[in-house]
């Protein structure tokens, strides 16, 4: 494999007295989609938060394009191009769609902002139509688009999507996966955390199943989909 874009070795993280992640290894190569699967509460979001620097890393190393980013403040990690679109969207409901998007380019400066806006509006014409609307009044699907659009405004090298299909109708879930595929086809590397196991595996180059703080199953997406161990691991049987 070429020099990985993201490389995680022996990652340990948790809250207070509990260790949620107990030594994870994971690589994402340029242009890849890597999926992280696992049942509720196993620590998928914790992994994303440790990667983006909003909770401390207790052990191991995280490298983005070869440079250590564990221990860096989240603003520097955003600047380096690791962009985390969080579970539950976390858009700013009182601000307009446009203001939300502009905040996405917060670390990129004004001149680049206009360029980024143009690109995001090309991907999400819906956001262009609604740019003066308060973000809190968007539909659930539109809010998820806004969250991803805001992430795109930061010029990601690697995009982390934490359950982007959460709470969407089946039709919109399809659309969301199509969008992930489209962004990836434009060359963007994606770390995808999902509950929709089969749809994620169909898309992912590689996937890992998280359980008890470790990856218990790893492999190519297509292989894992056919693996009888998957159901066992995933259901924690």
């Amino acid at each position: 494999m070429a020099e990985p874009l993201l490389s995680i070795r022996g990652l340990v993280a948790g809250y207070g007295g509990t260790e949620v992640l107990r030594g994870l290894d994971l690589d994402v190569a340029p242009g890849e989609i890597v999926a992280v699967l696992g049942s509720n509460g196993v620590g998928k979001t914790t992994l994303n938060k440790a990667l983006s620097g909003v909770i401390p890393v207790r052990g191991g190393e995280i490298r983005l394009e070869g440079k250590r980013i564990d221990g860096s403040p989240s603003k520097d990690i955003v600047e380096a191009g690791l962009i985390h679109v969080p579970e539950g969207r976390r858009i700013f409901p009182d601000m307009t769609v446009l203001e939300n998007l502009e905040l996405g380019s917060y670390r990129r400066g004004r001149p680049r902002r206009a360029q980024n806006l143009e690109r995001v509006f090309a991907t999400f014409p819906r956001l262009l139509e609604r740019r003066t609307q308060r973000a809190g009044t968007l539909s659930g699907g539109e809010q998820q688009m806004l969250a991803i659009g805001r992430g795109m405004m930061a010029e990601p090298r690697l995009l982390i999507l934490d359950e982007p299909s959460l709470g969407l109708s089946p039709l919109l879930v399809e659309e969301m996966f199509a969008l992930v595929q489209r962004l990836n086809a434009e060359g963007l590397a994606i770390l995808l955390v999902e509950q929709n196991v089969m749809q994620s595996l169909a898309l992912a180059n590689r996937a890992h199943v998280l359980e008890n703080g470790r990856f218990v199953l790893s492999g190519r997406g297509a292989d894992l989909a056919a693996d009888p161990e998957l159901e066992k691991a995933y259901l924690g049987l």
């Binding site: 983006s52 620097g53 909003v54 989240s74 603003k75 955003v78 600047e79 962009i83 985390h84 679109v85 969080p86 976390r90 858009i91 700013f92 409901p93 009182d94 601000m95 905040l103 996405g104 917060y106 670390r107 805001r150 930061a154």
Partner: peptide, 15 residues
């Protein structure tokens, strides 16, 4: 205003 509304969301856009 972003931090006031959502600290995590603000941190994740690089504030």
């Amino acid at each position: 205003r972003a931090v006031a509304k959502d600290k995590l969301g603000a941190a994740l856009v690089g504030i």
